[in-house]
Amino acid sequence: MVVVTEHLEQEVSRFLIKEAELLDNHAYEEWLSLLTPDVRYIVPVQVTQEQGVPSRPTSGMAHLDEDYTSLEMRVRRLKSARAWAENPPSRTRHFVTNVRVEPGDREGELKVRSNVLLWRSRGDEPHADLLSAERHDLLRRVEGQWKIAQRVVILDQAVVNTRSLSVIL
């Protein structure tokens, strides 16, 4: 089992910051290289329920429910001049904080939780969309590099306040 040291925490934080930079720079192909081939990327739909009802994962629906093939397809799509949702591209800024690192269940794996605030601005409209979420990642060490093997993004809203989730959280 991995021992979580301060050094390791720092390394994981730096990894997530680097990842955010790639996304904000629209370097999606490089971003893909941070994923394992068996990656799962899920953004469940949030549903407001009475206190005491387990809040997740009960909605049974997801905004995104992806594997490597579908993420690669989305990335390939974004390169087309006719992917209108992102042409012109959104200006995004990922603010990643509150990084928490725990050993994973398997050797070479870490469970990492982080908070993310995503600013998305399109065109010359003065207002921007702001999305807040907690990310539950599974990181795996592959040939000396950390890779994302799983990400579950828990959105802090039931009704999504952006015209489309054409951006990665």
């Binding site: 739909v45 909605s59 049974g60 629906m61 997801a62 009704v159 999504v160 015209r163 489309s164």
Partner: peptide
């Protein structure tokens, strides 16, 4: 119906 509906706001 499978799961909850997607709900989002479009301008």
């Amino acid at each position: 119906v499978i799961g909850a509906p997607h709900r989002w706001v479009i301008d």
